[in-house]
């Protein structure tokens, strides 16, 4: 067993709040969206009929947009660091991707390179979520507010982009949920985002060795 004792504050209160808001919105948006894309009346009825469900969908969309926007404005430093981390890919990240971080059973992973605050997989997820959300926003709002003025082709285009982005996002988020909450190797991180923000220093030194080294140096 390792010697490192103590805890690491991985996610601040504001970050966690934003994550919660986004999570709840995402579930509502996904549910209502699936409901009216596939004509599942039982889902629509959950929100009080199809017209109400779409009302819920658009207004949840507003919160879904404003939440991260306000967060970024008030936490620019955290945001900038986050962006820096997820857009920096070194050979350690590619090494992680080659072995898939040891998460995939049939890929042998004897040595996994040290990782930043977020491993390469999480970086890709972060980028996917940011690009995906931007696409959802730029197609979603016109379908709601400009549906009268837009030509049919644009309504159609928005619809298609909105749908396929949603498919990709939902799949990505399902994977994210599995690794962060269910997978025995990584589920200890669940609490850091969903509850108090802390992770074991011991765990961090393994999973995010490069970041932990920085934190230690700063001590």
């Amino acid at each position: 067993m390792s010697e490192i004792k103590g805890k690491v504050l991985k996610h601040s209160e504001q970050t966690r709040t934003m994550h919660w808001i986004h999570l709840i919105c995402f579930i509502i948006l996904g549910l209502t969206g699936i409901g009216f894309y596939f004509d599942i009346t039982s889902i629509d009825n959950l929100f009080g009929g199809s017209a109400n469900a779409s009302n819920v969908h658009v207004w949840t969309g507003v919160v879904f947009t404003l939440g991260p926007l306000i967060y970024v404005l008030f936490n620019f430093e955290k945001f900038a660091k986050f962006i820096d981390t997820i857009t920096t890919f070194t050979k350690d990240d590619f090494g992680w991707l080659k072995t898939m971080g040891g998460y995939v059973p049939f890929i042998k992973a004897e040595h996994i390179p040290p990782q930043d605050k977020y491993n390469a997989g999480q970086k890709i997820l972060g980028l996917l979520v940011i690009i995906g959300c931007i696409l959802m926003i730029v197609t979603g709002f016109p379908m709601w507010l400009l549906r009268d003025t837009m030509p049919a082709i644009l309504v159609w285009l928005c619809w298609k982009v909105h749908f396929w982005t949603a498919v990709i996002l939902i799949l990505a988020i399902l994977g994210h949920f599995f690794l962060a909450a269910i997978h025995p190797k990584s589920r200890v991180e669940f609490a850091s985002m969903m509850i108090d923000g802390y992770v074991d220093a011991e765990y961090t030194s393994h999973h995010n060795a490069k970041w932990f080294a920085q934190l230690k140096k700063a001590e």
Binding site: K7, D84, I134, V138
Partner: peptide, 29 residues
């Protein structure tokens, strides 16, 4: 018990990346 916390303050590179992505989003839109 040891508590490890990230330091405040950002590097120039982080600042430019942060503002850059906001600008890029605006241009994209």
């Amino acid at each position: 018990m040891n508590i490890f916390v990230e330091r405040g303050g950002i590097t120039r590179r982080q600042f430019f990346k942060g503002t850059g992505i906001i600008a890029a989003t605006a241009v994209f839109a």
